[in-house]
């Protein structure tokens, strides 16, 4: 395989070349994104060895499915995040029956302050989303953040937040609709 990748390649170029079976591009893609994606796995799964398994499966899937990456539908970062996050959530669903319900978890969802995104790393997309989240009713945005950072189902979130399922669903659905409107303007 041609080793034509250079330090200056964008993630999009690396991912497209991975789709063309360029192993050097795939290795560089891994180097550049694995720590961030591993952080995501650890956060969702709360268990390092399982997070390692999921990251491995996800990168195997990236190699095999990179030829389906369509740059016109979004950046490589977003595509990779979706692949990894979907794997992690699928894993959470598989172990659902053994998950302990922790009623405090809903309240312990971190807010943005102090996260890496509070610093210079944050993208313009992130800053826009954060601004829109701040405009939501605080219980809506807390529910969205709890969902995002735990990968829990509606039902699990309702149990953890000690809120009726229908209420929790309506909070999140309203939040999503309001976010959509806010992000479009």
């Amino acid at each position: 395989m041609n080793d034509t990748s250079t330090e200056t390649d964008t993630l999009e170029q690396l991912l497209v070349r991975t789709g063309m079976r360029d192993r050097a591009a795939f290795a560089r893609l891994y180097q550049q994104t694995a720590p961030r994606l591993f952080g995501l796995c650890v956060r969702l799964l709360q268990e390092r060895s399982e997070a390692e398994d999921v990251l491995q499966e996800a990168f195997v899937s990236v190699w095999r499915r990179a030829n389906h990456y369509n740059p016109s539908l979004g950046g490589a970062n977003t595509w990779l995040t979706a692949v990894v996050r979907n794997r992690a959530i699928d894993r959470l669903r598989q172990r659902r029956e053994t998950t302990n319900v922790d009623p405090l978890e809903f309240e312990r969802v971190p807010d943005a302050s102090g996260g890496p995104a509070a610093h210079a790393m944050a993208s313009a997309d992130y800053l826009r989303l954060e601004r829109c989240l701040e405009q939501l009713d605080s219980k809506y945005s807390r529910a969205v953040r709890a969902a995002f950072f735990t990968g829990a189902t509606y039902k699990e979130l309702a149990e953890r937040g000690q809120v009726p399922l229908a209420t929790l669903k309506s909070w999140i659905r309203r939040a999503l609709l309001q976010l959509r409107t806010c992000l479009e303007t």
Partner: peptide
Amino acid sequence: AHWRRRLLPLAEEIGPETP
């Protein structure tokens, strides 16, 4: 894909971990 672009930037809040 449109919803990915809207929501997934939230993952930037999660710090990196060295695998």
